[in-house]
């Protein structure tokens, strides 16, 4: 085995993680995009996306997960989510007031409906997922050297 394989957990955990982590990420994206039709929404989907990266980090060690999403990228995505949410709210002023649903309502029970609600869900999920992943990385990685 190479040196890279010695970090993280055992081979069984790594194999199962390789099979399941993509499915977890896809499930999170499904929960976010169907938030206005079925149970779910931006909060739950964002936490699921953060959990998929946490899963990767627990199984493979911190280098592999931080290569996918670094800390600065997590901070960037969180700021993008917050700004996008505020921007959508401000765009409501084109029709009258803050948080106006200025897009068309569309047909019910379809994916592209309900105006700004799916866009807000995407913004909130970016914010929640990136923020919680940044918290986890800060708690796990940065305190390791003090315990040795």
């Amino acid at each position: 085995m190479s040196r890279e394989h010695k970090k993280g957990m055992s081979l069984i955990v790594k194999t199962i993680t390789r099979l399941t982590v993509g499915l977890i990420l896809l499930y999170g994206i499904y929960i976010i995009l169907h938030g206005h039709v079925s149970p779910g929404g931006g909060f739950a989907g964002g936490v699921i996306i953060a959990l998929s990266f946490v899963h990767l980090m627990l199984a493979y060690g911190k280098e592999t997960a931080l290569r996918k999403v670094s800390r600065s990228a997590a901070s960037f995505f969180e700021s993008v989510g917050a700004t996008l949410f505020l921007l959508i709210a401000l765009l409501g002023f084109t029709g009258g007031y803050f948080f106006l649903n200025f897009l068309g309502k569309g047909e019910p029970f379809k994916l592209f409906s309900a105006g700004i609600i799916p866009l807000c869900n995407i913004a909130i999920s970016l914010k929640v997922g990136a923020g919680l992943f940044a918290i986890f990385v800060a708690l796990v990685v940065l305190n390791l050297d003090s315990e040795k």
Binding site: H36, V37, G41, F98, N101, K105, S113, A114, G115, I124
Partner: peptide, 30 residues
């Protein structure tokens, strides 16, 4: 609102200010 999930419509349309405040609290916590 056009959303069939009423919880989602309450969060993001009727009471979106609540969600904005929540986003602020989360940002502060991070």
């Amino acid at each position: 609102t056009g959303a069939t999930n009423f919880v989602s419509s309450v969060i993001l349309d009727y009471r979106a200010f609540d969600t904005l405040g929540e986003a602020t609290v989360l940002f502060t916590a991070v």
